[in-house]
Computed example of a mutant assay.
Amino acid sequence: MRALLVVNPAATTTSARTRDVLIHALASEMKLEAVTTEYRGHARDLARRAAESGEIEMVVALGGDGTVNEVVNGLLHHGPDPGRLPHLAVVPGGSTNVFARALGLPNDAVEATGAILDALCENRDRTVGLGLAGGTPGSVDEAVPERWFTFCAGFGFDAGVIGRVEQQRERGRRSTHALYIRQAMRQFLGESHRRHGTITLERPGQEPVRDLSLSIVCNTAPWTYLGNRPVYASPAASFDTALDVLALSHLSTAAVARYATQLLTSSPERGPHGRHALSLHDMTDFALHSKVPLPFQLDGDHLGLRSSVTFTGVRRALRVIV
């Protein structure tokens, strides 16, 4: 087997020595080319070239969810074709690693590498569904390129939190769960539209849902992790279905406290619920529009402000070694 290993040298939980061990382990079982990323978008470019070459059978992403997202977008640059495209394998090296953990892989890079090698020996893989987000025709965001995501997207509040965290990391702060909690509090206190939402959700053949204050799109469950604790925004979300949505229409102090508590105590059987919560399951096509530009994120990567985003849930988009 010919494989490409895409290594993010800034991965927060793997040292240079650990990466060398992983490369040696993988190279002992396959013809491996290891490339270290050098700039934002490099992992996408490497994966695209691997897919276009027709010679690479597997692309391994060693890094966090951002690295995985870039690799996926490179592999799917010309669209999904699970029978032709290289397999994807993921070695978690970030601070959260939602996609890898949702696949059932260990959160330790060495153990995950062992699990991948076992899966290769046993010819185990899985074809997963993914989400695709893009600009809305006729809107100011129409020219925004479409982008794939593996586990979640956010339009509004949670994307604003991620944007704040990225600003702190650019100033040298470490990515910790405490940092996310502090920035979530600051985002809430500075949120000007929490009582009167600006988001409208539109679905084909359905009446629009207006005045939403928060919207989270999930491709799998859990939505994220706090340490080793899984957090379920949409417990029914799955790689085997299309997309799920959790939206809130009211972000008063009492409502936020209630829904935050529900998130922290969520389970595979029950997520946030109540008269201000909207939960939708297995959505193939829909759009989110806002009266004012709002922060937007995919797979934990802040992508700036948007006024309108379309979403497509694509079943059986990519083969993954698990």
Rank of each mutant, 00 (worst) to 15 (best):
A11P: 08
T12A: 15
T14F: 05
T18E: 12
H24E: 07
E29S: 15
E29L: 08
H42V: 09
R44L: 10
A47V: 11
R48F: 13
A50I: 11
S53N: 06
E55I: 08
I56R: 03
V72W: 01
N73K: 12
G74Q: 03
H87F: 15
V91S: 11
V91T: 13
V98W: 08
L105C: 02
P106Q: 00
N107L: 04
D108G: 06
V110S: 13
L117P: 00
D118W: 07
A119Y: 02
C121G: 14
R124C: 15
T127C: 13
T127H: 04
G131S: 07
S139R: 02
A143F: 07
W148D: 08
F151V: 09
R169S: 02
E170F: 10
G172C: 01
R173A: 05
T176W: 01
H177I: 11
I181E: 15
I181M: 15
R194C: 02
R194D: 00
R194H: 05
H196F: 13
E202N: 12
R203G: 11
P204R: 02
P208K: 03
L214G: 02
V217Y: 03
T220Y: 07
T224H: 05
D244L: 06
S249Q: 11
S252M: 06
A255Q: 04
V256D: 00
A257W: 15
Q262M: 09
L264H: 04
A277K: 05
D282R: 05
D285E: 15
A287Y: 03
A287R: 03
L288Y: 02
L294M: 08
F296R: 04
L298Y: 04
D299E: 11
S307M: 14
V309E: 01
G313M: 01
A317N: 10
V320A: 06
